[in-house]
Design a protein around this nucleic acid. Structure first.
Length: 473
RNA sequence: GUCCCGUUCGUCUAGCCAGGCCUAGGACACCGGGUUUUCAUCCCGGCGACAGGAGUUCAAAUCUCCUACGGGAUGCCA
């Protein structure tokens, strides 16, 4: 029981080890909202040196499959959220699948029965509230219903403060087919797994009065609750909270689009939380250190993919080229631009000049394809621009003549620069820039790209000369 | 219908608990300029908000109340 006058907050729970849980129901996809809930629990566990428990809420057998479970595990691992207890990691409070905890639920149901807090109706077992009973017409259900004037329960929420709410109807804790319901198993598991902090979505806040009723009936002090603001969908997509069907709502999608897990994780951490200063791009250690429940937002947030892309780019930019190549290689093989065993040194030299120019790995194949293959696409706009000068062939011939004089040993930025400078001087030009756009187009098919001279160096003598030759035709 | 939660730039948010330092700060997006005779990087600038009303106070984004709007719950889904 809470003591009157005692300051509300998390302090009173700091005496014992923090135990939090993420309790998903495997549905076959890993939603941003779920990931955020998981992440906040994980961050809090890491911040407090507590335990992060993964519990699988698979009571609805029809909906749960092996594949669905795999999607969940994969998403968790991809985001780097390891669990201290849960499937494959026994912590002494298992099993961690609700479908395997039948005996425990039976035992706890027995406790409620012994206390006279249950009754059966139409084959289902109801939890019996305490209070005066009366009948009332219910607008929502459109019929007369039995209601209870139960004492309001007080929910101590670390984000919202004290929330008072009264239940008015008995609720089912065991279905007529014998299976226990969410509210019941959730509370029993939190008790038996010694969960100290329940961090979950705000959609559960109204349900929490049911849970507190159950905790009270078991004679157990409820855990510290923290109800996270919901993530709403983009108003252009409709109203309400973001759902699996909304575009951009699934973690899998960002994995497929080659976002960096650290970037996605950083962006998700900022959904309803911030460190209290202007930091946004943060290493995971920094986030763990700064993370605290009290800094979590009350109001709902809208997920903004552009912001996530921006944070992702911050990570991409600061990656050493070796790491960048490690992430980029599968992106390029996937598109058939390079083979599995493509020379690492060449790959890195290409990426070195592309990395600073490009904001996402997703855009990489289109940006650098011409380094690896001859069947690159020609941008009609760039072509038009070059061709309208009318002397493209002539310019190409001059460049070829000039670059042919550069020996393979001198084929580098300074050697190329010297050749172009000479070319300019020989033609009474101060700078060689009039030959550049044509040359760039001839070797890449586009008008933009990496810095010009480094690009030629990396492409190599044969490729550049060969493509310029084709330009004349 | 009832109950619960919420509301600061288009978006994410700082500030609110401990009222003055707020002509409300940052970031994303957008717009303009510059750099780069390429460019998606980078730099500079601009745009732009305390939901409305009443009250308390010398003073309110900050405290109180009301209204509006948004969200959630009200399932033998989780």
């Amino acid at each position: 029981m809470l003591v009157k006058g005692q300051p509300q907050g998390i302090n009173q729970y700091l005496m014992s080890e923090v135990r939090v849980r993420f309790a998903p129901s495997p549905t076959g996809s890993f939603h941003i909202g779920s990931a955020r809930t998981a992440l906040f629990n994980w961050l809090y566990a890491r911040h407090t040196d507590g335990k992060f428990v993964l519990r699988i809420e698979d009571t609805d057998a029809a909906r749960n499959t092996e594949e669905a479970l795999e999607v969940l595990f994969k998403g968790m691992r991809w985001l780097g959220m390891d669990w201290d207890e849960g499937p494959e990691v026994d912590g002494g409070f298992g099993p961690y699948f609700q479908s395997q905890r039948g005996e425990i639920y039976k035992e706890y149901l027995g406790k409620l029965e012994a206390a006279g807090r249950t009754y059966e109706k139409e084959g289902a077992i109801f939890f019996k509230l305490e209070g005066e009973r009366y009948t009332e017409f219910d607008e929502y259900h459109g019929k007369e219903m039995e209601k209870v004037r139960a004492e309001p329960v007080e929910i101590d929420d670390a984000i919202r403060g004290k929330v008072v709410r009264a239940e008015t109807r008995d609720f089912v804790i065991c279905r007529s087919d014998g299976s226990p319901t969410f509210h019941f198993v959730n509370v029993v598991d939190d008790i038996t797994m010694k969960i100290t902090h329940v961090i979950r979505g705000e959609d559960h806040l109204s349900n929490t009065s049911k849970h507190v009723e159950l905790f009270n009936a078991f004679g157990v002090k409820p855990p510290q609750f923290a109800h996270l603001p919901l993530i709403l969908k983009d108003p252009k997509m409709g109203k309400g909270k973001m759902s699996k069907r909304d575009k951009g709502s699934l973690i899998e999608e960002y994995e497929e689009r080659h976002f960096l897990p650290a970037g996605v994780r950083n962006a998700i951490a900022l959904l309803g939380w911030n460190p209290g200063d202007d930091r946004e791009f943060m290493e995971i250690g920094e986030i763990i250190e700064a993370f605290d429940i009290k800094d979590i937002q009350k109001g709902a947030a809208r997920f903004d993919e552009a912001k996530m892309a921006h944070i992702n780019f911050q990570y991409l930019k600061q990656l050493p080229v070796e790491s960048y190549a490690w992430f980029a290689r599968p992106v390029l093989t996937e598109k058939g631009l390079i083979s599995e065993d493509h020379n690492e040194d060449h790959l890195q030299r290409v990426l070195m000049i592309c990395q600073e120019k490009i904001t996402s790995l997703e855009a990489l194949p289109e940006f650098c394809g011409y380094f690896f293959r001859d069947d690159y696409t020609i941008d009609p706009k760039a072509e038009k621009k070059v061709m309208k000068r009318g002397n493209a062939g002539e310019l190409a011939a001059q460049v070829i003549a000039s670059l042919e004089s550069v020996s393979p040993d001198d084929w580098n930025v300074s050697g190329l620069e010297a050749a172009f400078t000479k070319l300019a001087a020989d033609n009474g030009q101060e700078k060689p820039f009039m030959w550049w756009p044509m040359t760039r187009f001839a070797v890449s098919g586009v008008s933009g790209g990496p810095d010009f001279l480094p690009m030629l160096e990396v492409m190599g003598r044969d490729l550049v000369l060969g493509r310029l030759g084709k330009m004349i035709d």
